[in-house]
Amino acid sequence: MPDPVPPTEIELEFADGDYLFALRIPQLAELQEKCKAGIFTIYGRVLKGRYVFEGEIVGLAHEADAYSHDLYETIRLGLIGGGRGLVDGQAVKVGPQEARRLMERYVHPAPLREAWSIAAAILSAKIEGYAPPKKAEPAQEPAKPGRKPKTDSTSRT
């Protein structure tokens, strides 16, 4: 049996909760129109300057090429396409007005670096697919007592 197609949406911790981000056909069309570029050009601009170093994503702003509009519109339209979130354990619907409110309250005043990371994740999910990390299987045996970690009185906490 062939592998299932990976999802092209992603759930992220964002703003005041966890939100689903998805760029469906209507959102893709609007994103391309607003950014005056094709989706792969937008994706390329957003990814430029982002690298994986020792398992962590590092963004080098001096190598970046994205426009602020690329970032903001990707996030706003991703919220609309996802259509839902979970805030304080309560399901919330996200339409155009709620997406705009979230953008104005949480994205516009924040550093661009944060928007850059979110937009990159949304576009990557749409273009490359996203396979959420699998949850660890419960252990079959109880944990064995281990050594206590060595403490260092000069370490910072």
Rank of each mutant, 00 (worst) to 15 (best):
D152Y: 14
I118D: 03
V87Y: 03
A120M: 05
A115K: 01
I122K: 06
E9R: 04
E137N: 09
Q97P: 02
T157F: 12
K48W: 06
G89D: 00
A64C: 10
P26R: 07
S153T: 07
P111L: 12
M1E: 00
G146Q: 13
F53M: 13
S155N: 10
V5M: 08
Y130R: 07
E13K: 00
R113E: 05
E137G: 06
K148P: 02
K48S: 14
P109L: 04
E141N: 09
A37N: 11
Y72R: 08
A120G: 04
Q140I: 08
K148I: 02
D88C: 05
G129S: 04
T41D: 15
E98Y: 05
Q140T: 12
Y72P: 02
D152P: 04
K135C: 06
F53T: 12
S155M: 09
L20W: 06
A136N: 09
A61Y: 12
E11Y: 02
E11G: 00
S155C: 06
E33C: 07
K134P: 05
A143M: 10
R100S: 05
S68D: 15
L31S: 13
G59E: 15
Y130V: 06
G81A: 02
R45P: 11
R50L: 11
D152M: 08
D16M: 09
A139C: 04
L20V: 08
G17L: 04
E114R: 01
W116T: 00
Y19F: 15
L79D: 15
E73W: 07
K126Y: 02
L86P: 02
F21M: 09
R101N: 14
A119M: 01
A110W: 08
D3L: 03
K135Y: 11
G78L: 05
R76W: 01
T151M: 08
V92K: 04
G85Y: 11
A143F: 10
Y106V: 00
L47E: 15
P132C: 02
E128W: 00
P7R: 12
A61M: 10
V46F: 11
A66C: 11
R84H: 10
R84Q: 14
A29W: 09
L12Y: 11
S117H: 05
D152Q: 12
G44Q: 04
D70K: 01
E9Y: 08
E54N: 12
T74H: 11
S124Q: 09
L102R: 13
Y72T: 11
Q27M: 14
M103Q: 08
H69N: 14
D65A: 13
I75V: 14
E56P: 00
G83I: 07
R105P: 00
I118V: 05
K144E: 15
A61R: 10
P133N: 05
A115S: 04
R113S: 01
P132N: 02
G83H: 10
R101W: 10
D88Y: 09
A110L: 06
